[in-house]
Nucleic acid binder design. Structure first.
Length: 557
RNA sequence: GCGCCCGUAGCUCAGCGGAGAGAGCACUGGUCUUCGGAACCAGGGGUCGGGGGUUCGAAUCCCUCCGGGCGCGCCA
């Protein structure tokens, strides 16, 4: 990474300045080095301004002292003091040109730092109740989690992807009851539809299928038995739908973890006892409570209901014990909807209570997606049966565009998804521009191959035009963008970067011909084009978006 | 009433302590007919919700108000 190299260089200069007595000892943990926003400068450090007060000197004087001690480096064309006390670094053109060979030889991913260092980590995402199909809102969590997983893996985590299947409790039973009611109706029996039951059309369809396949089988048993059996049936069918929707988005999981299995193993009851022995449990109003924080009742949550059933919180605590104590994950990232944010404080409290190490657990909350159709917001509610389905959306605009839209925004921003706009504008969508840039480069490379041009001996030092050097600079940002996105768990930097890289190539393409009568220049530029193709493909790969070698041109409307 | 998130260009959103505030779309004008035009270039458009504060420096941090979303012990 370029920043790491400039940091090392800057530290050397600071050391030298200090040895020469031009600078007192200073804290250099954070050099304040980042990409410069100023034109004509690549990177800049704000260190002199930050330490000015502690050092008791003017920022510019500090900067001058550091720059004065800086040695020459083939990487840098200039190191200068600017403005109120910035140190600006400009990369050297010949060094930039060399980086093309480096990218071709090692690949764009080579320079991505291994932040994960092989740490055993898990990302849990989607984990939607298996009571129906995924909505567009779920699609955001799915796409976001998937890209985050790709990022964490790219950065060197030993990562497992998990879906927590809530195949236990009231919601699942409610689904069973909903199916049962429709099923009975099919066969001429009147079983009232449960309050808050699942009203989606799929429930009726399943009931019809069950009636057709099983006949009166479920009417011949007790209602309890029938509901139990149909709950299991409903969960299986829901999971099949969910998997199908996820498949459409190219999203897969390494493990599907059953909540019910925790109950079967006795883990849920066991963890309640552990909490009780540590003094975190109180009995009140006929229920059992997880008591954390001060003595007020505000920090209390039910573990065992008056009915004797355990709550979701109890299962989830047992689940996290399983993740950390049993399966020994050193880092767990949970991606979920922001409507669950109240749950995070309780889980952190449980992590503390059980001494599991709260810093190993991170929650990422995706804000709601407001679906707009015909300019009217569609109220998303799985239970009212009035919702926009993810499957429909993917069918209409495709996996690539859906993923691109879903990960383009920061998780903590709400998002408006205008289905009509996405459909109508899909041809003008940024994702097309990026994929098109890739296809265009592939086409150029095909043409070169047909012409029998072997550019393996191309001399990249011929790449000295501003647009060429700009493209190389953009490619050097790849590892920076990937590592920053992985570190902050913010995949939305990727689509923005991909777009700027594609735009940089398109600009270049319109100013300079890659294939020209100048054979040497052609070879050098083919190398450049190849490196850009590789980098574009790498970002698209991280986003889970296809990088086609050719695109079929559709007729204009 | 309490807690979390958001309020930046006409629209959808980046930027989240640094140097004239950006992108995509939309709009206006231009290049060009190309190694795939689903292209490129230029332009207009912003009291960064309002007001205080901290700082050498605030869209960015703190307080407060206004507006929107979500949540608030026995749903998951």
């Amino acid at each position: 990474m370029v920043t790491a190299r400039i940091e090392a260089y800057l530290r050397g200069a600071i050391d030298d300045a200090r040895k020469a007595g031009k600078l007192p000892a200073i804290e250099t943990a954070n050099l304040g080095l980042e990409k410069s926003r100023l034109e004509g400068s690549d990177y800049s450090s704000t260190l002199p301004m930050r330490i000015a007060r502690a050092v008791g000197a003017a920022p510019r004087a500090i900067a001058e002292a550091i720059v004065g001690s800086a040695s020459d480096s083939p990487m840098l064309a200039s190191v200068e003091v600017a403005g109120p006390g910035f140190i600006n670094f400009v990369l050297a053109d010949p060094w930039l040109a060399e980086q093309v060979d480096d990218i071709l030889q090692h690949g764009p991913a080579h320079a991505v730092p291994r932040l994960g260092g092989g740490v055993r980590a898990q990302i849990e995402f989607v984990s939607i109740n298996p009571t129906g199909p995924l909505t567009v809102g779920h699609g955001r969590i799915a796409a976001f989690g998937d890209v985050l997983a790709r990022l964490l893996k790219a950065v060197g985590y030993d990562l497992q992807r998990e879906y927590y299947v809530n195949d236990y409790g009231n919601q699942v039973r409610l689904l069973g009851q909903s199916i049962y009611s429709h099923y009975a109706g099919q066969l001429g029996e009147d079983v009232p539809f449960p309050l808050n039951g699942y009203k989606g059309k799929y429930v009726e369809e399943w009931a019809q299928e069950v009636a057709a396949q099983a006949g009166r089988k479920y009417l011949d048993m007790t209602e309890d038995e029938a509901v139990d059996a149909l709950s299991i049936e409903g969960v299986a069918r829901s999971l099949a739908m969910i998997r199908a929707d996820l498949d459409e988005l190219q999203i897969g999981f390494d493990n599907w973890f059953s909540e019910n299995s925790l109950h079967q193993a006795g883990d849920v009851r066991r963890v309640i006892e552990v909490l009780r022995q540590s003094g975190y449990v109180t009995e009140r109003e006929g229920a059992t409570w997880f008591s954390h924080g001060d003595s007020s009742h505000e920090r209390e949550n039910v573990l065992v209901k008056r009915t004797g059933e355990t709550t979701y919180l109890a299962s989830d605590i047992a689940y996290h014990v399983n993740k950390f104590a049993e399966r020994k994950f050193d880092r767990v990232v949970n991606v979920m909807g922001a409507d669950h944010h109240g749950h995070t404080a309780r889980m952190y409290a449980a992590m503390d209570a059980l001494d599991l190490g709260r810093s190993k657990l991170t929650f990422v909350l995706c804000q709601m997606v407001h679906v707009v159709v015909d300019g009217v917001p569609v109220k998303q509610s799985k239970r009212s049966g009035d919702f926009e389905l993810l499957g429909q959306l993917v069918n209409e605009i495709g996996s690539d565009a859906t993923r691109y839209f879903m990960i383009s925004r920061a998780a903590d921003s709400q998002m408006e998804f205008d289905v009509d706009l996405a459909k109508k504008k899909s041809d003008e969508n940024p994702v097309h521009k990026i994929r098109y840039a890739h296809a265009r480069i592939a086409s150029i490379l095909r043409r070169a191959e047909k012409a029998g041009i072997d550019f393996s001996d191309g001399d990249t030092s011929l790449l000295d035009r501003p647009q060429e050097l700009g493209l190389i600079r953009a490619m050097l940002d790849y590892p920076e963008v990937v590592s920053a996105a992985a570190k902050s768990l913010e995949p939305h930097a990727l689509p923005h970067y991909a777009l700027s890289l594609a735009s940089a190539f398109n600009s270049y393409y319109h100013v300079h011909r890659v294939i020209s009568p100048d054979v040497q220049l052609t070879k050098a530029r083919l190398k450049l084009a190849m490196a850009v193709r590789m980098t574009v493909a790498a970002v698209l790969g991280l986003m889970g978006i296809s990088a086609p070698d050719e695109m079929i041109r559709e007729e204009a409307e």
